[in-house]
Nucleic acid binder design. Structure first.
Lengths: 192, 192
DNA sequence: GTCTATAAAACGATAGAC
DNA sequence: GTCTATCGTTTTATAGAC
């Protein structure tokens, strides 16, 4: 899956990130990671202490990427409303779900503080960042004054996370897109 | 966990329903099901063809219960808006997540049409039922005419499913409650 | 740094006695 | 209907040669 042009350590991380997204932590065995990374068993245990250690490193990379992508939309140009809509509408592989959000339904992840840490940190950061955008909109007079920024931030983040679940249940991206359309329509009525 | 006053078959189903909710399918072994149901290995394989067969039966029971509960709120008394808010606000063990929704992140479930069927059917039913309530509200003149019932239904369902994910990521129910508060506030602005 | 061999445990299922 | 014994596989990790 990954060419040997990349260093073994990086190939292991890239393969793990992909497999964690696709199958979660518990369902991803060291063996399939090694196969996907074209690395032997010895290499994996040389570069990492074990499956958990490798997964934590991979999750932290994915968390960083997620924050980077969201940051680009949320602190980019445009009004607060435009940035919120941009976050909701930005291209997503909706059927694959959220790299972080999906971990909350993996029992092994829940049981490991080290694995949960990047998940909690990333989702908390996301909600706070969204709340900051809403707060700006309210202060600008762009959004109604009676809006609760923390609550609306959670709603927006939940629409995305829940949209993934609906799409995966349906086996098709359309429920994700519909959930976003509905949310955008509601948001536009919340303009001052 | 379950007293022997209940028949073995029912104890197996009750234990499986609980474990599927708590840990998902892949992470639930026949052994822990048997222990929780106070049933031997022989009993389990007498009453069911195997783990998958038992899980399908358990999921179908949980799906039925979920539809029953949602139906009670959504086709109960009150205006369309009151029923939608009732659905969003009704008591949920938000940290436990959704019995159906969580299955969409279990690789073994995704790979089995038999296990996916109740999940797909239930979520599709939920969205359609919510859309029916929205449609009534629009026809009543209770909700604005420019609302897309299918889209708003997906948004409402997504807020709940995503609220669970946020709550589990945060380790605390408050993001779920905040997401619902934000959604209710938006919905009230969509009144005609 | 990477390889192969090995190990202890857990998994899901089956066999056959009672 | 329920029990125990057993099977073949997979999992995660370690050992030790190269």
């Amino acid at each position: 899956m990954y060419s040997r042009a990349m260093e073994t350590r990086k190939r292991l991380l890239a393969a793990t990130r992909e497999l964690l997204w696709e199958r979660g932590y518990a369902a991803t065995s060291p063996k399939v990671i090694q196969a996907a990374a074209s690395a032997g068993q010895g290499s994996m245990y040389h570069h990492f202490h074990g499956k958990e250690d490798l997964a934590v490193a991979a999750l932290e990379e994915s968390a960083e990427a997620l924050r980077h992508d969201a940051q680009a939309v949320l602190s980019g140009p445009g009004t607060a409303l435009e940035r919120l809509e941009g976050y909701l509408r930005r291209q997503r592989e909706s059927l694959r779900g959220c790299r972080m959000g999906r971990m909350t339904y993996d029992a092994d992840v829940l049981a490991s503080p080290a694995l949960m840490a990047p998940v909690t940190r990333t989702m908390d950061w996301l909600v706070e960042t969204l709340a900051g955008v809403v707060r700006q909109g309210v202060e600008n007079g762009e959004l109604r004054e009676d809006i609760d920024p923390e609550a609306l931030a959670c709603t927006v983040a939940a629409v995305v996370q829940g949209g993934y679940v609906l799409a995966r249940a349906h086996g098709d991206t359309s429920p994700f897109d519909a959930a976003v359309d509905g949310a955008v329509a509601l948001l536009e009525r919340a303009a001052a």
